[in-house]
Deep mutational scan, measured.
Amino acid sequence: NQASVVANQLIPINTALTLVMMRSEVVTPVGIPAKDIPRLVSMQVNRAVPLGTTLMPDMVKGYA
């Protein structure tokens, strides 16, 4: 199973992502692939993302 990107903490709306905010985990449904973590750094979330939430492409500005 492919690992997805999961929030390692509460990420407030419009926050630029950093490595410490994200972890990889095998979850259902599948979200953004963990291999894309380096690409996500500095991108902003367009909503508040609670701890443990799988990041989906529509949550990150400029990803999709």
Rank of each mutant, 00 (worst) to 15 (best):
N1Q: 15
N1G: 15
N1K: 04
N1M: 15
N1D: 15
Q2V: 14
Q2N: 13
A3W: 09
A3G: 08
A3M: 13
A3Y: 08
A3S: 11
A3K: 04
A3C: 15
S4Y: 03
S4M: 02
S4E: 01
S4D: 01
S4W: 02
S4V: 02
S4A: 03
V5F: 02
V5I: 08
V5W: 01
V5K: 00
V5M: 02
V6R: 04
V6Q: 05
V6N: 00
A7G: 03
A7T: 13
A7Y: 01
A7H: 01
A7N: 01
A7K: 00
A7L: 04
N8H: 15
N8C: 11
N8Q: 13
Q9S: 09
Q9W: 08
Q9F: 12
L10Y: 06
L10N: 09
L10Q: 11
I11P: 01
I11C: 03
I11W: 01
I11D: 01
P12I: 04
P12S: 05
P12F: 06
P12W: 09
P12A: 09
P12D: 13
I13S: 12
I13T: 12
I13P: 10
I13Q: 06
I13C: 12
I13E: 14
N14D: 11
N14P: 00
N14E: 11
N14L: 08
N14T: 05
T15Y: 07
T15K: 06
A16D: 14
A16V: 12
A16S: 11
A16N: 08
A16E: 10
A16W: 09
A16R: 06
A16I: 09
A16M: 09
L17H: 00
L17E: 02
L17I: 11
L17Q: 00
L17R: 00
T18N: 05
T18F: 09
T18P: 00
L19A: 12
L19R: 06
L19D: 14
L19Y: 08
V20C: 13
V20I: 10
V20Y: 08
V20R: 05
V20L: 09
V20A: 09
V20G: 11
M21D: 05
M21I: 03
M21E: 02
M21R: 03
M21L: 06
M22Y: 01
M22S: 00
M22K: 00
M22N: 00
M22D: 02
M22Q: 01
M22L: 08
R23M: 08
R23T: 06
R23P: 02
R23H: 07
R23I: 14
R23D: 11
S24V: 09
S24Q: 14
S24F: 08
S24M: 09
S24D: 15
S24A: 10
S24L: 06
E25R: 03
E25W: 04
E25P: 00
E25C: 13
E25M: 04
E25D: 09
E25G: 05
V26L: 12
V26I: 12
V26W: 06
V26D: 15
V27I: 11
V27K: 06
V27E: 02
V27C: 08
T28K: 04
T28Y: 13
P29D: 13
P29K: 05
P29A: 06
V30I: 07
V30D: 15
V30E: 15
V30Q: 12
V30L: 11
G31L: 02
G31C: 03
I32W: 02
I32E: 01
P33A: 10
P33E: 14
P33L: 14
P33Q: 10
P33T: 06
A34T: 11
A34C: 15
A34E: 15
A34K: 04
A34S: 10
K35H: 15
K35Y: 15
D36E: 10
D36R: 03
D36T: 04
I37H: 03
I37T: 10
I37D: 01
P38H: 05
P38F: 05
P38D: 10
P38I: 10
P38C: 10
P38K: 05
R39P: 03
R39H: 15
L40I: 13
L40P: 00
L40E: 01
L40Q: 00
L40T: 01
V41N: 04
V41F: 05
V41P: 03
V41G: 02
V41W: 03
V41A: 04
V41R: 04
S42T: 14
S42L: 08
S42V: 03
S42W: 08
S42P: 02
S42C: 15
M43N: 06
M43P: 00
M43C: 05
M43I: 04
Q44H: 07
Q44A: 07
Q44E: 14
Q44N: 05
V45C: 09
V45S: 14
V45R: 00
N46H: 10
N46A: 11
N46M: 14
N46V: 09
R47W: 14
R47K: 15
R47C: 07
R47D: 12
R47E: 14
A48S: 14
A48C: 13
A48N: 12
A48M: 11
A48T: 11
V49L: 10
V49R: 03
V49Y: 02
V49I: 13
V49W: 02
V49D: 02
V49P: 02
V49H: 00
V49E: 01
V49G: 01
P50A: 11
P50W: 06
P50E: 09
P50F: 11
P50T: 15
L51M: 14
L51A: 13
L51G: 13
L51Y: 12
L51P: 15
L51R: 07
L51K: 09
G52V: 02
G52C: 09
G52Y: 09
G52K: 04
G52H: 13
G52N: 11
G52T: 03
G52L: 13
T53M: 13
T53R: 07
T53D: 13
T53P: 01
T54D: 01
T54L: 05
T54K: 04
L55S: 01
L55D: 01
L55P: 01
L55Y: 00
L55A: 00
M56L: 12
M56I: 08
M56K: 07
M56H: 10
P57N: 11
P57C: 15
P57R: 08
P57Y: 12
D58W: 05
D58T: 06
D58Y: 06
D58H: 13
D58P: 09
D58E: 12
D58Q: 08
D58S: 10
M59W: 10
M59R: 03
M59Q: 06
M59H: 13
V60N: 01
V60C: 03
V60G: 01
V60A: 02
K61L: 12
K61E: 09
K61S: 12
K61P: 14
K61A: 07
K61Y: 08
K61W: 10
G62W: 04
G62Y: 10
G62R: 05
Y63I: 05
Y63P: 06
Y63A: 03
Y63F: 11
A64K: 10
A64H: 11
